[in-house]
Design a protein around this nucleic acid. Structure first.
Lengths: 91, 91
DNA sequence: CATGCTTACGGATCACGTAACCATG
DNA sequence: CATGGTTACGTGATCCGTAAGCATG
């Protein structure tokens, strides 16, 4: 499991559509599809239902979504927090 | 920034020694050294002091350590939580 | 037959391990 | 000169993008 996979998963979950998620992420659909599938295989569960209209969350995917977003948010704030701390002054 | 880099960072921080960290992670020292350096460059700060005895945490590294451990722990529990949830029954 | 996810395939990028190198006490 | 981190270098794996394939309404 990688942060990239979590980012891709969140984008697809929020867009409900791999094409739009790919645009949002500036990648093409195949890598997206592959990473989602790899994540599902690693976890051993189906995260989405593939319909003719797009991809919709299944229960396990819905359970994963908020936690994935939390982790990504934590990672981002960690990076920013360190980067914007050139010296330990809190004046 | 990748989860691998955070794992490498935590191992070196806790061991205070790249050689032992490498054994613990089942990799060799050079990849470890490179990933730590890449992380430092990405963040724009020095995380460790390189001494003749090993690597010791600098203030920015000490600030990063607990947050990195938290994220890794969250990721692990997320994966386990989904994996051990074959059906959404909470009987 | 139009839309949307998936598989095939070739090429670039990244990460590792061995070996050689450099610094410190 | 022994210990420990770093750089060099070649190889193997991973990931992407284009193109072709397949399913559904």
């Amino acid at each position: 499991m990688s942060l990239t996979q979590l980012r891709y998963f969140v984008a697809v979950a929020e867009e409900g559509h791999a094409g739009r998620a790919a645009l949002r992420l500036h990648v093409s659909q195949p890598p997206l599809s592959r990473q989602i599938r790899a994540l599902e295989e690693e976890l051993g569960v189906a995260l989405f239902d593939r319909t003719a209209k797009g991809m919709s969350l299944r229960p396990d995917g819905a359970a994963l979504l908020p936690r994935a977003k939390q982790i990504l948010s934590d990672v981002a704030s960690l990076a920013d927090g360190i980067r914007t701390r050139p010296a330990p002054n809190r004046s």
